[in-house]
Design a protein around this nucleic acid. Structure first.
Lengths: 151, 151
DNA sequence: GTCAGTGCAAATAATTTGCAAGACG
DNA sequence: CGTCTTGCAAATTATTTGCACTGAC
């Protein structure tokens, strides 16, 4: 869970026998320049890149979102039903969790260091190498509780 | 997060304008009779039911897995990449979290009451009605760390 | 009796894959 | 220079939906 420069990414890729490519650098910097609290789906990313005048094919986006997540650089979130989203996996002071309304998908980010520590400790105790640790709370927000619609 | 009898499920369904059906009861009891630590996908469930000689159509399974999750009776987990699985949402002493190896998908369940409490408190503080609270840790297991395969 | 719920088959959405061409180390 | 990576188009997979029929309340 550390911040990455393109050079650091290249080093880490090379160590594992992969290559640095312009597409991978674009993805990394795009996530780094994202406003705090924003997370993108594969399609969103395609759109954002198009607006910036860059093009990376959708397959390449999918391939690299998965790769970067498995390296621990991105984290994969399922905030809205059936829509996977990604964000930078940030180190301790910025690390956060999500509280999601299952009806309207309104999402609140919150921090909790003790949860993060509990996660790190659990992974370590079993000899696992930690990549990401996320507490996801599914709930119904005050507004949706008041609505008359069932579920 | 409470244990349900078919009668209690019926009551809760009726309160919200839904109906009890044999299919819904079958799903509930199937999850209740599941060996501890097992979680099923929609397809798995179809298979399990077929073995028991019961039939519920796949669409009905999908519809009700979602309904029961949104009622807080089941919890939806993404343990293996791209495969949603479901298990009974159990009350406090049995409530647990998951540590998952992103390479081989080996999953360890663990308990942590303070995480559960932190989740409940967070939901309450924002006026959300809690349905489920899950800490998911993505990591690489000892065996996969030793393997030579990159990522 | 009415309307929610079901099963079927067809539709949709997200993601993956095969392959030829291009580019990184 | 070998082979990892890309882009494209086609394939696959999971999940959803329309509709006529059935059954719960």
């Amino acid at each position: 869970m550390a911040a990455y420069t393109p050079a650091a990414l290249k080093t880490e890729l090379n160590e594992r026998g992969w290559r640095m490519t312009p597409q991978r650098e674009i993805l990394l910097t795009t996530f780094q320049n994202l406003p705090k609290g924003e997370h993108l789906s594969a399609e969103d990313l395609l759109e954002v890149l198009r607006e910036k005048g860059e093009t990376v094919s959708l397959s390449t986006i999918y391939r690299n979102l998965k790769l970067l997540s498995r390296m621990g650089i991105l984290r994969e979130l399922e905030l809205a039903e059936g829509h996977k989203r990604y964000e930078l996996n940030q180190p301790a002071p910025h690390h956060h969790h999500h509280l999601i309304c299952v009806r309207c998908n309104r999402t609140i980010e919150f921090k909790n260091d003790s949860v993060l520590k509990a996660g790190a400790k659990t992974a370590q105790k079993s000899g696992y190498h930690l990549l990401d640790c996320q507490l996801t709370i599914h709930a119904i927000c005050p507004t949706c509780q008041r609505s008359l619609l069932p579920v």
